[in-house]
Design a protein around this nucleic acid. Sequence first.
DNA 1: GTAGGGTTAG
Length: 602
Amino acid sequence: MYKYTWFFPWPKGLKSLLLASKDRDSIVKIHALMVVSGIFSIGTSNGQLLAAYSRIGELELARKLFDKLPHRRVDVWNAMIIAYSRKNLPVEVVNLYREMNLEGVRPDSSTFTLALKACASLLDLEMGGEIRCRAVECGYEYDIFVGSSLLNLYAKCGKMEEAMGVFDKMPRRDLVSWTTMITGFAQIGHASEAINVYRLMQREGMEGDWVVMLGLVQACAYLGDSKMGLSVHGYMIRRDLPMDVVFQTSLVDMYAKVGHLDLASHVFEKIRYKNVISWSALISGYAQNGFAGNALELFIEMQSFGFEPDLVSLVSALLACSQVGFLKLGRSIHGYIVRRLDFNKVSGTAVIDMYSKCGSLSCARVLFDQISTRDSISWNAMIASYGIHGHGKEALSLFLQMTKTNLKPDHATFASLLSALSHSGLVEEGQYWFDLMVNDFKIQPSEKHYACMVDLLARAGLVEEAHDLIGSMTNEPGIAIWVLELNPDEPGIYALVSNFFATTRNWEEVAGVRKVMKETGMKKVPGYSVVEVSGELHAFVMEDKSHPQYEQIVKILEKLEQYMRDMGYDPNTDFVLHELEEEVKVRMLCNHNERLAFAFGL
DNA sequence: GTAGGGTTAG
């Protein structure tokens, strides 16, 4: 052994040599020399060699070495576990943890931490509990790393009460343990709790870093709290805390979710190294807020920058397609998903929604039948599709089929069903299922359900019953007040209420609603209709004369009207236009842009 | 000297 000390003066020097080796070749060389010189048989060096392989990501070489070692101490096991953990292979991590316990090797704090992290990513509470017990046995009950990992496990599994129990018992809490609680609450949607924990942390004199702020940004996104979101963003800028892509992407997401698309786009533009996720965040933001044009523009732009769309951006683009009826693009996205990615229930449901909203109910149904693991959202989408197309009976029969599976209809299922029944005028069925929803399925009706029922009853001329239904849900004095209080920022609601009174010829109420709108400075966003002709979209606003073929379009409309009269169509003279208030005239003329778009399509 | 907390979605 002595003659080789020229290469390896002492195993201690070997360690720094291994630490300095950044490539596979030099580590392999050292490995070989260790074997030749006999150092290999000295226990401590093996762990370092293994760690070196794992550091540079040479998983197979590390494993080969690991399997050959005769006496594996904790650090050798840990080195191997770290290698798997870094490669995101949680199943292997758990397997190694099991094996080492079987071999009688006592895990240390690092082992427990890594094993718990693996359980968190697998959402495996059972194994996590086992590891927790063993950690207590080994004297790591109050270890801060093990504690935080446990918090994370419970948070990821949505068990915040458990997490709270562990958190309360921790003798010492650092930034990471506080952060785990904050993001844990934020991610399961308990946003106000997240903010409360943050306040407690502040009271203990702990300064939040950027990970804490990230959790708060998520909480703001969930709550739709733009004020707090802005102040968190301001805090980051004032404290000059670094913001990476992940953080900026979360800001984009937050601003989009609170409806500040200008700010979302501003932050997005400032991201130096954008990735697919940042693009997707803004695309989905535009699509979710109904800005289909911006979403699709961005979707195309992203690809011109060389980014391949992922499932999220594709799903968002599909949503945008369905909003404007862009069947051609929607179909090609469908093809792309089938060819390149995974046609699973998420993408499948988005495709179903797209086909049905773009007019192709039969395509939607074929795809629904193709999804192997349908969840309640897929069912809801298909039931809604039948509703949109006015097939109330089919919607009902699909609903009945769904109740035969082990999936439970939820509030959204009933919203789709009731809307379908309402659009088909199936009054009795609607009333029957509404009652069953409340009494048997124990689902508290939301405003959407009430809206469907009011619509259903009112369409059938049962205005009194509709009125009673509304009265049954609240003690508030008038219908107008009741509806307007639900969503006072939505001009469409005002128009709806105004129209409702107009149809019952309650002119005083109409004037009242209009007055409120005027006082609050509310304007109804002008509606428009879009039609796809040979793969191109054409949009028409009300009384739109700007289209180059306007003259021809009007001629077609006139012709159609003549046909209708010849076939015995008698225009409804109940409504005399000059008797109506402005809002109602607008509503009636609204059909105009639909008619323009329709005639152009023809 | 090693381990724990982070982004998008039907």
